[in-house]
């Protein structure tokens, strides 16, 4: 009963109003990234945002709904992956509860944990439903590994472990930069403002470092991809 009570406390009116906006942020940033032809997804910034300010359960709900709406209305191939989106929100929420969302390098740890979760959860979906090869560009890597003699599950896992960390750490850093840009007064309206207490004097520096690191990560990843496909 105490769990139910604590979940209920996370779902305030602010949370219910934030979730649709967060889903829209996921979708629209996801589409901007496609327009910019970047090799990352960045389609769960909104999910992480909700997870941090409103807790893991709200994060899980945001991820799930976001994926279903995305899958039904924009990209059908996304539909079977909702458990991954659910876990991203859930795990990011718990990381924030544990204090891993208070400075840029702690956020990178959160990003890494989220990435590992996503990699593990998406593997059985990729293997069982798609035989390992999905409609995502990263399946080129899986295909390459399979052709060079790797087994199916290790091949899918290695692909995911290569792809996810860059995307999810950048996602968490950008979500952190957004939260850092919001006023303390505004954040205090949400159920879990204590998750994001950033030292006032350091705020600006933290945000700038987070953005710079996110940009560098995406650049490194692009470089790796170009070299991998080139070889």
């Amino acid at each position: 009963m105490r769990i139910i009570e604590s979940i209920r406390k996370d779902f305030t009116t602010m949370t219910w109003v934030l979730i649709p906006v967060a889903i829209a942020i996921n979708v629209v940033i996801g589409q901007i990234v496609v327009v910019l032809r970047l090799p990352v997804f960045l389609d769960s910034i909104g999910t992480v945002l909700v997870a941090v300010v409103a807790g893991p359960w709200a994060g899980a709900l945001t991820g799930t709904l976001s994926n279903i709406i995305w899958g039904l209305l924009i990209d059908p191939n996304a539909l079977p992956w909702w458990p991954v989106a659910l876990m991203i929100g859930f795990v990011a929420g718990w990381c924030a509860v544990l204090g891993l969302f208070k400075s840029w390098w702690k956020v990178m740890i959160t990003g890494f944990i989220v990435a590992v979760t996503a990699a593990i959860v998406s593997t059985p979906i990729a293997v069982y439903l798609f035989g390992g090869i999905t409609a995502s560009g990263s399946s080129f890597i899986t295909a390459y590994l399979l052709q060079t003699g790797r087994d199916l599950i290790p091949a899918v896992l290695s692909t995911n472990f290569l792809v996810e960390p860059f995307d999810k750490i950048a996602t968490c850093l950008l979500a952190f930069a957004i939260i850092g840009g919001l006023s303390v007064r505004y954040l205090a309206r949400f159920p879990r403002p204590e998750n994001v207490e950033i030292d006032k004097t350091e705020r600006r520096t933290q945000i700038i470092i987070a953005i710079v690191v996110a940009v560098i990560l995406i650049l490194i990843y692009s470089y790796i991809l170009v070299n991998l496909l080139g070889s």
């Binding site: 990209d75 059908p76 191939n77 798609f130 035989g131 390992g132 090869i133 999905t134 409609a135 399946s139 080129f140 899986t142 295909a143 399979l146 052709q147 199916l152």
Partner: peptide, 14 residues
């Protein structure tokens, strides 16, 4: 999208 998936799998399915 389904067509793209089909092509990917046709080539890369092990």
């Amino acid at each position: 999208v389904v067509g793209f998936l089909f092509v990917m799998q046709a080539f890369f399915h092990p």
